[in-house]
Amino acid sequence: MIYYFIMVLSVIVASFSQILLKVGANKKYDSIKKEYLNRYVIGGYFLLFLSTLLTIWAYTRIAYTSGPIIESLAYIFVMILSFLILKEKISWNIILGNVIIIIGIIVFYI
């Protein structure tokens, strides 16, 4: 059970990584190089790396097919964090669409 929690934690970390990347992308830079070599993007990919370690740890105990299904929670986490942190407008169709996406992923992997 704890390994499922680790998998969820990995998804949360990966979702925060996307938020960091977006925060970095929203800023203005005076060169292409700085668009990539800044603390947000580097931090974002560090979080993503951390998330892969957690995923590997979780996979030592959980079933291989349940991984992608748990990972699909990212669509919900990214949506909620986009709303809370990035102040993006989340309309009804974005919520509905992401729920349908998750249903599709579950159907695919069961």
């Binding site: 938020i19 990347l21 669509y75 990214v78 986009s82 695919f108």
Partner: peptide, 28 residues
Amino acid sequence: AIIWQQVIKRLNLAIAYSFKASALIWTL
């Protein structure tokens, strides 16, 4: 990663991220 950064610069994250699900087509 290089392309993704350019994409999210121009799109809302929640919308851009949902497109990641299209990977399932290629998995198949």
